[in-house]
Computed example of a mutant assay.
Amino acid sequence: MDDRARVAVVTGGANGIGLACAQRLSGDGFHVVVADFDAEAGPQVTAKVPGAEFVPCDVRSPTDVRRVVDRALEIGQGRLHALVNNAGQTARVRFADCDEATWQRLHDVNLRSVFSFTQACLEGLTAGHGAVVSVASVAGLVGAEDLSVYSATKAAIIALTRSLALELGHVIRFNAVCPGQIATRMMARVQADAGLRAVVTAQIPAARLGRPEEVANVIAWLLGDEASYVNGVAIPIDGGESAGFRQPKPSGTTGERVSPGKAP
């Protein structure tokens, strides 16, 4: 490996935000190790991400986590420069109806994976003066009806990120991003239903769903030198949705903004 090359690990990198992040980091000169549960997606990922290496991984498995990190350390000759904790799942279920298996699955995939990968990467990130970005959610900043368990795991990621910045911020930077309504597989139902999409986007000042690459751009910035003094933050990437309450629009209106000086 070129001694100047930087190594990044991206979990959940086979699609959506993870894939967009892997593509962006590859374009920025990182050698990207992509970890994902979908083993069959490997050839597609390496075709879309130049120079990437795909390692099948169940983020709930300590053995799989160790295999991914060991491979990244081998490529980086003991140094790691970036970790993106992106692996995640959701479950839309009312709290009263949530069983323990669902709670445990979301805890293991969303939160425990952040613990496992971050801890396994600490030595390499210290050697490489690296940075960590964990993908939380706006649902971790505010409550979300029928998503209480998901929200709890994402809020924990934010708290963990801030605590790690306090403990280890002198050698590794830790930050989180909090995506809102992003056009990924998790939002397939919204994207396929025009009526539902209109309801969802009516609550977003930007009046649209976000794109995975828009999240990846912020992650890449947080991992780069331009954000060298940014540590312990959780940045919403939600088109303004978490800024506050919006006034409901009358039925039949589009909610189009009116420019100053322009008559409605």
Rank of each mutant, 00 (worst) to 15 (best):
T90I: 12
G88P: 02
L106Q: 10
V142P: 07
Y150N: 08
V109I: 14
M187F: 14
A72S: 12
D99K: 07
R257Y: 13
G51P: 08
N231M: 13
Q247H: 12
P248L: 05
R197H: 04
V218F: 01
L73T: 11
A47E: 12
R185S: 14
I157K: 04
P264D: 09
Q247Y: 04
A206F: 01
T118W: 08
Q44G: 15
Y150G: 12
V69Q: 09
G239V: 01
E241M: 12
L166S: 05
A22F: 01
L168T: 02
V218M: 11
F37R: 13
P50I: 03
L122C: 07
G78H: 13
L209Q: 02
Q181C: 07
Q23K: 15
A8F: 06
E53N: 09
T90F: 12
D58V: 10
R24N: 05
R162A: 06
G18Y: 10
G255V: 00
V33K: 11
P248E: 10
Q119E: 13
G240D: 10
P248K: 04
G239A: 03
A91R: 10
L80P: 06
S163E: 15
V109Y: 03
V93E: 08
V132W: 00
G252M: 10
V109F: 03
D193H: 04
A234T: 05
V93C: 07
C21R: 02
D97M: 01
R246I: 02
P56S: 10
D108K: 09
A5F: 01
R6I: 05
R24V: 11
V114H: 02
A5K: 11
P236L: 04
A155Y: 06
I157W: 08
A91F: 08
V32S: 00
A52F: 06
A39R: 15
T254E: 14
D2L: 06
T201V: 15
D38N: 15
D238I: 00
P179F: 04
V84S: 00
V218Q: 01
A127W: 03
P236C: 00
D99T: 05
N86S: 08
P205M: 03
H31M: 10
G12M: 10
F174P: 06
V142Q: 13
A5N: 02
L19M: 08
F30C: 05
V9L: 15
A20V: 13
D36Q: 05
I158W: 01
D225R: 09
L106W: 01
N110M: 13
V45Q: 05
G224D: 09
V149K: 01
G42Q: 11
I237P: 00
C121F: 12
A82T: 13
A198Q: 14
F37D: 07
A101R: 14
P236R: 01
L111K: 08
G169V: 00
Y229A: 13
V258L: 04
D3G: 09
V135R: 03
A127I: 03
D36T: 10
T201H: 11
